[in-house]
Each structure stands twice: as C-alpha cells, then as structure tokens.
C-alpha cells in the first residue's frame, strides 16, 4: 500500500504542480469540515467530500481502485467505533448495556467528519509526494533540522522496507513463521537483524556525508514548478462557495 500511494503521488496528473496548490484544496477542505458547526456539518461534509473526490479521481486521475482501498480500511474502523458510540452503559441500577437514547444524534457527526476529512487526507496523500510536502514545510517556518531529519527518515524507510521484505522472504524459504511461537521468533530475528544492519548503514552514510564535506544542511533537488496564483484563486473560490452553500442550506437537527 505504501508503495502504491507513493507511486500515485508521483504519477498523477497533478504530480508536477506546486504542493501549495494541493494543500490549499485539501487542507482548506479539511479546515471547513472541522470548523463547521454541528447544524451545518452535513452540508459542509458532503460538499467538501464531493469536491475532494472529484479533484482526486477526475482531475488528478488517482487510480480508483487504490482510492477505494484506502477508504475501506478506515471505514472498517469507523464502523467498530460507531458501534461503541451507539450503545450506552448505565450503572445507576446495576450494569446495563443498551442502545443509547438518540444514538443517531451521537454517531452522525463523527461519521460525516471522518468520511469528508478522509477524502481530503487521501486526496493529499495520493497527489502530493511526501518529499514535496516536507520541502514546503521547510519553506513556511518548520525548523530545518526537523524537515531535514524527516526527509532522511522518509528516504531510509524505502531501503529499510526492502531489507525487511527480503528478510521475511528468506525466512519463509527456510520454513520460518510457523505457528505463534515460530512467527514471534522469526519476527524477532528480522527486527534484531535489521537494527545492526541499519546501524552499519548509518555509519556508512555518516562517512559518505563527511567525505562530501557535510556542513549540517542537506540539500535535495525539488520540483521546479512555481505555485499558480490563478489555480490557488480558483481553488479558494470553490472552497468558499462550498462553505457558503453549507452555511445557507437548511440546518441539521
């Protein structure tokens, strides 16, 4: 899944666009949903959700199958959480678990918020490479040592994930991962073998950086596209219209 998201983020139609354009759309949508008062939440949630889905699937052309797969897992968690919210525990006269009075009023706001903000999060994740987001965060005031560190972690994740995949495949070939104890032992060996290898790798990286006269700042190439004021203005207008429509539509109970 992690590879599929990164591939989508680098291969969609909006991949070359400046991250600010996409952040205005998706983070703006997210802010509208989170800030919407309860009475206007359904209209705001549905409006933002539709805008985010159309932007991601129709305009940026994120693969639909990937998008639906990403929505499915949190939706499963949402159902479990909603079931917990729908019941009420009353211990005033002995322990009694029953359907909560007015359960629907309790469960619909988080459901609307989750589905709408999830559309924004998945839209951002599948259209914008993490490296672009980190570079953008660096430009808007997040301390450089943190964005540099996050960028190095991001790059190391891919190397580490590959080592783990190979280690697990090698162990399976040696009949590892058999039963509960066998799986625990196999996983323990994978993690314990991985860490010294990563330590050795960090020492090699350290040597390589020192050999290149490392002075404390890492410079990576970024995509050269500048933010388009026109596209940002259109995005702002669409979001403003969505928020206005939500404010004018009949209120929820």
């Amino acid at each position: 899944m992690i590879r599929a998201i990164d591939i989508a983020a680098r291969g969609n139609r909006w991949a070359g666009r400046h991250p600010a354009e996409k952040m205005v759309l998706y983070l703006g949508g997210l802010a509208i949903v989170m800030a919407a008062p309860r009475a206007h939440l359904p209209a705001a949630g549905i409006g933002v959700g539709i805008v985010a889905v159309i932007a991601s699937l129709c305009l940026a052309r994120v693969p639909t199958r990937l998008y639906l797969g990403l929505v499915a897992v949190p939706t499963g968690f949402l159902l479990t959480s909603v079931a917990t919210l729908a019941v009420s525990l009353d211990w005033s006269d002995g322990w009694r678990l029953a359907l909560a009075p007015d359960a629907w009023a309790t469960i619909w706001p988080p459901c609307v918020r989750v589905l709408a903000t999830l559309a924004c999060l998945i839209g951002l994740a599948t259209t914008t490479p993490v490296s672009d987001l980190l570079a953008f965060l660096g430009r808007v005031g997040v301390p450089a040592f943190l964005t540099d560190l996050a960028l190095m972690i991001y790059r190391q994740i891919w190397v580490t994930a590959e080592i783990v995949e190979r280690s697990i495949a090698a162990q399976r070939a040696r009949l590892g991962f058999g039963g509960y104890r066998g799986t625990l032992r196999s996983l323990g060996i994978v993690a314990a073998t991985l860490f010294p290898r990563l330590l050795a790798r960090s020492h090699r990286l350290e040597l390589g950086l020192a050999a290149r006269n490392f002075g404390g700042r890492l410079a990576f190439l970024e995509s050269g596209a500048a933010a388009s004021p026109a596209r940002i203005a259109v995005t702002g207008l669409v979001l403003a219209a969505t928020a206005l429509a939500a404010a004018l539509l009949p209120v929820a109970p």
């Binding site: 540099d148 190391q156 020492h203 350290e206």
Partner: peptide, 10 residues
C-alpha cells in the same frame, strides 16, 4: 543525523 534517520525508519 544518519543514526536518527535510520532509527526513525526502523
């Protein structure tokens, strides 16, 4: 820095 990076990845 590399040590912190591989630790985060780990």
């Amino acid at each position: 820095r590399p040590m912190l990076a591989v630790s985060g990845a780990f």
